[in-house]
């Protein structure tokens, strides 16, 4: 047992370290918030991000964006927010749905192509996507999935599957086979053993992987901008980029939009952060 004063000193030091880290983490974001709230620009070198002449007008104009169509006023921002959420949630769902059985097979079965399959999965992470945007466009065109949220979801989901498989496979491997064997002895099929025994135990990792997939889909801009041809189908990142024009950019509105785009993610993070830790612990990133 340590003597009292040293222990207290240690606690203070640790809290100081953490508070320093929090300040480091939040500081740039405070600048974004300050820009979003600023009415008059004040090009000054200041250390503290205080908005001059604070105003909510940028938030209002971004959130209030609407369009008059023959069917009446359309709340564009709301529609685009919905698109982003739907696409991201669908990505998480489809991605996990595709990855789960595959990860299970890779964890439990021996089959031809297993080794090369795993290698191929790792290799897909290494290849920068610079040259693959146009081929993707062509493939989606051939499948008649251009200009549709479905096509976008399928692209995002497929891109998130390799990483999901790595995570989930490790999680499944950490679960003792005895559990499924016991279930199958009791009369369950393999699939039932998988769904009823393994999945509930791996739920934290599933939650974490779903969150990763959600986030990458939610913030993605390039594919969404290239594949969507209908303003009411745009996702939020595409809308955000429209604040940056050829000659001038409306940085204040861009910042306001960015803050609003981040809020749902922060909320989701807060809700899921308990699972986050437990999920990664139960073999989420074990080799």
């Amino acid at each position: 047992m340590k003597p009292g004063p040293t222990r207290v000193l240690e606690r203070v030091a640790v809290h100081a370290l953490l508070l320093g880290a929090v300040a480091f983490a939040l500081y740039p974001v405070l600048w974004v918030i300050a820009l979003a709230l600023s009415g008059t620009p004040a090009p000054e070198a200041t250390a503290l991000p205080m908005p001059l002449d604070p105003t909510l007008s940028h938030f209002e104009s971004v959130a209030g964006a609407s369009k008059t169509t023959p069917d009446g006023e359309v709340w564009l921002f709301g529609r685009q927010l919905l698109n982003s959420l739907v696409v991201a949630l669908a990505t998480a769902g489809v991605g996990i749905g595709i990855a789960l059985p595959a990860a299970y097979a890779l964890a439990r079965f021996e089959f031809f192509g297993k080794a090369s399959g795993m290698a191929a999965l790792l290799m897909t992470q290494m290849f920068p996507a610079v040259a693959s945007a146009i081929p993707l466009y062509l493939i989606l065109d051939a499948l008649s999935l251009l200009n549709s949220r479905t096509g976008l979801v399928l692209c995002y989901a497929s891109t998130s599957v390799p990483f999901a498989i790595f995570q989930l496979r490790a999680a499944f491997e950490a679960i003792p086979v005895e559990l499924e064997e016991a279930a199958m002895v009791d009369g369950a099929t393999r699939w039932q053993a998988f769904t009823k025994v393994v999945l509930p135990v791996a739920r934290p990792t599933i939650a974490v992987t779903a969150l990763f997939a959600f986030m990458s889909a939610y913030n993605e801009f390039i594919l969404a901008a290239t594949l969507l041809d209908d303003e009411s189908m745009y996702t939020l990142p595409v809308m955000l980029q429209r604040f940056i024009g050829e000659y001038d950019a409306q940085w204040e509105k861009f910042a306001a939009g960015a803050i609003m785009v981040s809020v749902p993610v922060m909320a989701l993070f807060y809700l899921a952060q308990r699972h986050l830790v437990a999920g990664l612990a139960s073999g989420g990133v074990k080799g």
Binding site: I98, F127, I139
Partner: peptide, 17 residues
């Protein structure tokens, strides 16, 4: 078990790459 993953990744990830 892996069929869907193979199809999805094959068409939408590996083919474009």
């Amino acid at each position: 078990y892996v069929a869907h993953a193979v199809i999805a990744i094959g068409i939408l990830v590996i083919a474009p790459l």
